[in-house]
Simulated assay, not measured.
Amino acid sequence: MRTHRPVRYAALATAALLALTSLTACADDASGTASGSGGKGDGKGVKVKIMVGGLDKVIYLPAMLTQRLGYFDAEGLDVEMLSEPAGVQAETALVSGQVQGAVGFYDHTLDLQTKGKHVESVVQFSQAPGEVEVVSKKHAGDITSPKDFKGRKLGVTGLGSSTDFLSKYLAVRAGVKVSEFSPVAVGAGPTFISALQKGSIDAGMTTDPTVAQILSKDLGKVLLDMRTPQGSQEALGGPYPSSSLYMQTEWVDGHKDTVQKLANAFVRTLKWMSTHSAAQIADKMPADYSQGDKKLYAGAIESTLPMFTKDGVMPPEGPATVERVLKAFNPNIKNATIDLDRTYTTEFVKKATG
Rank of each mutant, 00 (worst) to 15 (best):
G160Q: 06
K117L: 14
H108G: 00
T92P: 01
I143A: 07
S83F: 11
L77P: 12
Q127Y: 04
S96F: 13
A90R: 02
L82G: 14
G158N: 07
Q98K: 15
P85R: 07
M81H: 07
V123A: 05
E120S: 07
H108C: 01
K150A: 13
A93C: 09
F105S: 08
S96M: 14
R173Y: 09
F105K: 01
R173W: 08
L166P: 05
Q124M: 11
H118M: 12
F105R: 01
E91H: 14
F125R: 01
V88D: 04
L77T: 13
H108M: 04
V122W: 06
F149W: 14
S121V: 15
K168L: 14
L170G: 05
K150Y: 05
S162M: 03
V103G: 07
T144F: 04
E133R: 08
K147F: 09
V88P: 01
T163A: 00
Y169P: 00
E75P: 03
G97S: 13
V103L: 05
D78L: 05
H139F: 13
Q113I: 08
S121M: 06
D148E: 13
A90S: 08
V95D: 11
G160F: 04
V135R: 11
F105L: 01
L82H: 14
V122Q: 05
D78R: 08
E91A: 11
K138G: 08
A140I: 08
L110V: 15
H139Y: 15
V134G: 05
F125A: 00
V135E: 08
T109G: 03
V172P: 00
G116H: 04
D111K: 14
L170I: 03
V95P: 13
A128R: 00
S167I: 11
V99C: 14
Q89A: 14
S162L: 00
G160Y: 04
F125G: 00
Y106I: 02
L110P: 08
Q100R: 07
A93N: 10
V95Q: 10
S162R: 00
Y106H: 06
D164A: 14
F149S: 12
A86R: 01
T157M: 10
S162H: 00
A90C: 03
T163L: 02
G97T: 14
V95T: 15
Q98N: 13
A86L: 00
K138L: 14
T109W: 02
Q124H: 02
V99N: 13
T144K: 12
V156T: 08
V135I: 12
L159V: 03
P146C: 11
S161K: 02
S167Q: 12
G141H: 06
G87V: 03
K153P: 04
S162T: 08
G151D: 10
V135M: 13
E84S: 15
L166C: 07
K168I: 10
E133K: 04
L77S: 12
V135Q: 10
A102D: 06
L112N: 13
T157Y: 04
V172C: 00
K147N: 10
A90Q: 03
G151W: 04
S167H: 08
V134P: 02
H108F: 12
V156W: 05
V134R: 09
R173G: 09
S162N: 07
L170D: 07
Q89I: 05
L170Y: 05
Q124N: 06
D111W: 09
E133S: 09
G87Q: 06
G76L: 15
T92N: 06
